[in-house]
């Protein structure tokens, strides 16, 4: 089944120089393994292709039901140099939540995942 990330996770993002960080957090602890399995570094890098110029790094924080992504080269130089509206990367969080995940029906039902997406 298709699951919209925005229905199972929340997120907050910020900046450090020209790098944006996106912390993505499972809404329920039981849903965290879905994030850890589906949100691979590669898939997130593909998702943001064209929006960032550098690599993506991923860190797992199972204690917080969270993953932290560092998106390098995301902010047009960063800080005051940047000409972007989102110079401090504040809404990369919801950009990540646009992802739609493919989850086996059985698992989705067991975990009570909200169905969504096209």
């Amino acid at each position: 089944m298709k699951v919209r990330l925005v229905d199972i996770a929340h997120a907050r993002s910020g900046d450090k120089g020209d790098t944006a960080n996106v912390g993505v957090i499972a809404m329920r602890t039981a849903w965290y393994p879905i994030l850890e399995r589906e949100l691979t570094t590669e898939r997130v890098a593909t998702h943001f292709r064209g929006m960032i110029t550098g690599p993506v790094e991923r860190y797992a924080l199972p204690n917080l039901d969270a993953l932290n992504f560092l998106l390098h080269g995301a902010l047009g130089g960063g800080g005051t140099l940047s000409l972007k509206t989102d110079a401090q990367g504040k809404v990369f969080s919801t950009a990540l939540l646009r992802m739609v995940l493919d989850v086996p029906d059985e698992e989705g039902r067991t975990l009570g995942l909200p169905r969504g997406g096209q």
Binding site: R12, G14, K16, G23, I25, Y59, A66, L70
Partner: peptide, 11 residues
């Protein structure tokens, strides 16, 4: 937790 991950680098 939303605040904990704000501006996080290597946790």
């Amino acid at each position: 937790i939303e605040q904990l991950v704000y501006e996080m680098g290597n946790p």
